[in-house]
């Protein structure tokens, strides 16, 4: 299997806090690689550095063999990296379908197109609608995004990540704040994505992580203390001690 994402020696500090500490990690093509770790371990900071909204202090990030460490966030998106946000990050003023259509539109390369009305462009609308169908929100397409529930927002996040048709999806706690039933729906959705995309999944929900992941990395204080299959992680003493044992 080929390596899609390769992170070597990544460091990032905020003042005195080391949010990322000599971090090494790789994601292989088609793999679902989960990162778990306690609150404040530096999981979101890792994702922000991968998609470029935060700059590492040192280290190197390679995507499909290409060094992207200093690349602008929008340029990384064009290469095929997309993320979802832990704290829902949608355009609340726009309708649900407009949010998704923007993700589809983003693939066109550029949007310096001024004449035709975006809402009248059939392929854009059709694909956005198909994505909404896939996450079960087709009937809410025309509602203002602000009117949807938290769980529905989480599904929109996934639809947007799908719309980007990215090779690498960085998913930051897609189940954050979901109820039991909604979480189960999300697991089904993620299982459906598995194998079709390379995924770096951050998640607190251990049942979901152990059910879905090919490999799991455990992040504590910015440093990865163990990487392995779910079985290996479950029986790893250091992990038991530092993290799982607490539960």
């Amino acid at each position: 299997m080929s390596v899609v994402l390769d992170i070597a020696g990544l460091n990032k500090s905020f003042g005195g806090i080391k949010a990322t500490d000599d971090l090494n990690l790789s994601v292989e093509a088609g793999e679902l690689h989960a990162v778990i770790g306690p609150n404040g371990a530096g999981k979101t900071t890792l994702i922000s550095q991968l998609c470029g909204t935060q700059t590492p202090d040192s280290g190197r990030i390679r995507f499909k063999g290409r060094d992207i460490t200093g690349m602008k966030p929008y340029a990384r998106a064009h290469l095929g990296i997309t993320r979802s946000f832990q704290i829902t990050s949608l355009i609340l003023e726009m309708s649900v379908i407009d949010n998704i259509a923007l993700a589809v539109q983003a693939r066109d390369g550029h949007s310096f197109r001024f004449i035709r009305a975006a809402r009248k462009i059939a392929p854009l609308r059709r694909e956005a609608m198909a994505l909404l169908q896939r996450v079960g929100l087709a009937d809410k397409a025309e509602l203002p995004t602000g009117a949807l529930s938290h769980g529905e927002h989480r599904h929109m996040e996934i639809a947007i990540a799908l719309g980007a048709q990215a090779d690498l999806m960085l998913l930051d706690e897609p189940m954050a704040g979901l109820g039991i039933e909604e979480s189960a729906e999300m697991v089904t959705l993620l299982r459906d994505l598995k194998g079709k995309h390379s995924i770096l999944l951050i998640e607190h929900d251990m049942d979901a992580v152990f059910a879905l992941a090919d490999r799991i990395s455990v992040l504590v204080y910015g440093h990865i203390i163990a990487t392995g299959t779910p079985d290996e992680i479950r029986s790893n003493d250091a992990v038991q001690h530092a993290y799982l044992g607490e539960e």
Binding site: C51, A75, A77, D98, S111, R113, A164
Partner: peptide, 23 residues
Amino acid sequence: RSRFGMVLQGAKGNPERMVTLGF
């Protein structure tokens, strides 16, 4: 109403999202 305009309005609502989409 154009695609350009949708990006402009999207960036008003949520610039970080627009950048990570590739705009």
